[in-house]
Computed example of a mutant assay.
Amino acid sequence: MQPSHAELARTLAAGRLPATASVACRPGLFPVRHLTDGDGRLLLLAPADGGLTDALRPVDGADDTAVVLDIPDVPPVAGAPSMGRVWVAGWAVALDGAEARAAALDWAGHDPTGDLLDVGRGQVLHRVDVAEIRLERAGLTVDVDPDEYAAAAPDPLHAIEFDLVADLADHHVEEMTGYLRRQLGPAVGREVPRVVRLDRYGFVVRLGERLARLAFPRPVADRADLSRLLHPVLCPRCSHNHAHEAA
């Protein structure tokens, strides 16, 4: 098992990666702070007197403005493959009043930045209703169905992937090397297997110049669930002692 195109797009667009915005009929690219709400819509937070806010002001009596966010992946460690790049296009509307307050609370639940206290004065929140999603991965570009994108959930481990991979490399090399060799068998050869990425479905393992994917028995829900799943691997002596005591 591995992430679907819709899940990859939602994970990349979740708001943890740097993004740039292109605005219809406006030159240039704008760095943008963004998050994705539960329905897959984008929220953009920008200074009220900044270039992005100015570019997103509707013209000619329109109610909204076309915008495209470009969000490339940033792999967690050297030698890790990229998840790809996503372009999310839609229609941006500036929020005010109750809508702005609700969006600010939604944002604060993921990222309680102090700038949210200034929404309506020095900061502006825009909501982007998504119309088109394109995902580029390994040199191939695919269109992602907007309904599938909206229904998909971003990966629960993505925000802490760097910490998890670093912890395995710093503190569990012996246990993980033995486990990966047992799971991958002859495919390992003489290479030292190294976990370079992980998601809810499993590990991506580097074997010299090659990459292999090792699936979990089931998708994991969060960090605690991952810890429970890996506990027998990372602490085999603990598991053995527990089994002995139970017997």
Rank of each mutant, 00 (worst) to 15 (best):
M1T: 03
S4H: 04
S4E: 04
A9C: 03
A9L: 00
R10P: 01
L12K: 01
G15Q: 01
L17P: 01
P18C: 12
T20H: 13
T20S: 13
A21R: 04
A21V: 03
A24W: 11
C25N: 14
G28L: 12
D39I: 00
G40P: 08
R41S: 12
L42I: 03
L43C: 00
L45R: 05
P47S: 09
D49Q: 15
G50T: 02
A55S: 08
A55M: 11
R57V: 15
D64S: 15
D64A: 14
A66T: 10
A66F: 06
P72L: 10
P72M: 09
P76N: 00
P76T: 02
S82V: 06
S82Q: 06
M83A: 11
G84H: 03
A94G: 12
L95A: 05
L95F: 10
G97M: 08
G97F: 07
A98S: 13
R101S: 13
A103R: 03
A104N: 07
A108T: 10
G109C: 10
T113S: 14
G114T: 13
D118I: 04
V119M: 10
G122Q: 15
G122H: 15
V124G: 01
V124E: 07
R127C: 11
D129L: 11
V130N: 05
A131T: 14
R134Q: 13
E136A: 15
A138V: 10
A138E: 15
G139A: 03
V142P: 02
D145W: 04
D145G: 00
D147K: 11
E148W: 03
A152Y: 07
A152H: 07
A152D: 09
A153G: 05
H158I: 03
I160S: 15
I160N: 10
E161T: 03
F162G: 05
A166W: 12
L168R: 08
L168I: 05
D170W: 15
H172T: 11
H172L: 13
V173D: 14
E175C: 04
M176A: 13
Y179T: 00
L180N: 09
R181L: 06
R182T: 10
G185T: 02
P186Y: 00
G189Y: 01
P193N: 02
R194K: 11
V195P: 08
V195T: 05
F203G: 07
V204D: 06
V205S: 02
R210K: 09
R210A: 07
L211E: 07
A215Y: 08
V220K: 00
A224R: 11
D225E: 08
S227V: 13
L229T: 06
P232L: 10
C235A: 15
C235R: 12
P236E: 10
S239P: 05
H242I: 04
E245W: 14
